[in-house]
Structures are given as structure tokens and as C-alpha cells.
Amino acid sequence: MPTEIIFATNNANKVKEIKAVTGNLLTILSLEEAGILIDIPEPHDTLEANASEKSKVIHQLTGKNCFSEDTGLEVEALNGAPGVKSARYAGDTRNFQANIDLLLNNLEAHANKKAQFRTVISLIWNNQEYLFEGICKGQITHQAKGISGFGYDPVFIPLGTDNTFAEMSMEEKNLYSHRKKAMQALLDFFNQVGVL
């Protein structure tokens, strides 16, 4: 029976991506699947602190092993923005079309389109916290392309390909994905400590 662990998120897209990485190595429970119907705030100014906040809230609530993640798109010409504010870049409504429009607008005057996605996972395992990071470097397109994925996927092309994340299948995206890299680091840790 695979080890059961709570993923502290209400984001169905993130759950799908993480489950695609772990396969049947772990039994991943979203907050909803674990019967936890709360929305955890992300008040901090770093991905690390936000990820940590979410996993600690769920651990305090349940006493169970859990993990959370926070992800930001960091654009070089915009001094790392939208970064930790990626989901709320165009306001608190978390409207990704508005976020994309604002991003493309802010980048219009810049020749440098270099960017990276960065994911930080906070794992609480046996009452101890561990952090894992995954980075995917690439660039921002001039216009949105593709219909897969979510968030900024239609405007981000990872290094080594000509397609945006939104033009890729889940399997293709996971060849480059920041979230996959961070989750792989967590799985490597589980291998080391004999969980897998």
C-alpha cells in the first residue's frame, strides 16, 4: 500500500500534475479529498514562506504528514516579477487571462524575454520540515499559444523547445516542468529515508 500524504492545495490542476509525477508511488490526497475545506492564505513575500505556511497549517490541523508548494513566474526584465504574486498579478480575483495580459503589456518595451518558473515544496514529514526546489528556465512569448495547462502556460516556452507549456501534453510538460523537478527532489528524499 503506497504511503498516504496530504497535498495542501485546493488547485485541481496542481494536484493533477503532482499525481502524474508520483504515479502509484504515493497516495496523494488533496485538501478536498482529505475532507479539509479551508483556503489557506499566502501572505508572505517569498515562495518558501508561503509553502511553509500552508504545510504547517495543515500539519497543525491534522497532525499528519503533508506537503505544499508555492510557484512563481520570475521574469528577468521585470526584476523577478510577478514572482510570489504570480496568481494575483492583476488583482485578487486570480484571473489568469488578466495576469497574462498585464504581463505581456509590461514586457512589450523589453527585448529581454528571459524568465523562469520556480516551485518550492515544503514537506512536513515526521514533524520535521524539508524544502525542495525546482526551476524551469525559458522565455515569455509575444502572444498566448496553446490550450493545455493553466496559469501562465500559454506564454512560457521552456529552454530546449519551441512550444509553450500550453501546447504540450502532460508527459511533454513534465520533461521540463519546475513542479516535476521539485517533486522529483521530494521523491529522491523519500528514497533516501526508505519510504519508497
Rank of each mutant, 00 (worst) to 15 (best):
K145V: 15
H142A: 02
E53R: 02
A185H: 14
S148C: 06
N105Q: 08
A166D: 02
E32I: 15
Q139L: 07
R88F: 01
G134N: 03
A109T: 14
V57A: 04
F132V: 08
I147A: 09
F189K: 06
P158C: 02
Y89W: 13
K56Y: 11
T22Y: 11
I147M: 05
N191E: 10
T46M: 05
H59V: 05
T9L: 05
K85N: 09
E17S: 10
E17L: 01
N127M: 07
D101M: 03
L78Y: 02
T3E: 13
N24G: 10
K114H: 11
N79P: 07
K173L: 13
F117K: 04
T161Y: 09
I5H: 11
L73I: 08
A49S: 13
F132L: 06
A81R: 12
I100S: 08
E76K: 04
F189A: 05
R94W: 00
G149P: 09
P154V: 04
N10G: 10
A12L: 04
V57I: 15
G80E: 02
T164A: 05
E129V: 10
T46L: 01
I124V: 09
C136L: 03
G23N: 10
T161L: 08
D45L: 00
L196K: 09
S148R: 10
L37I: 10
S68F: 15
I124F: 01
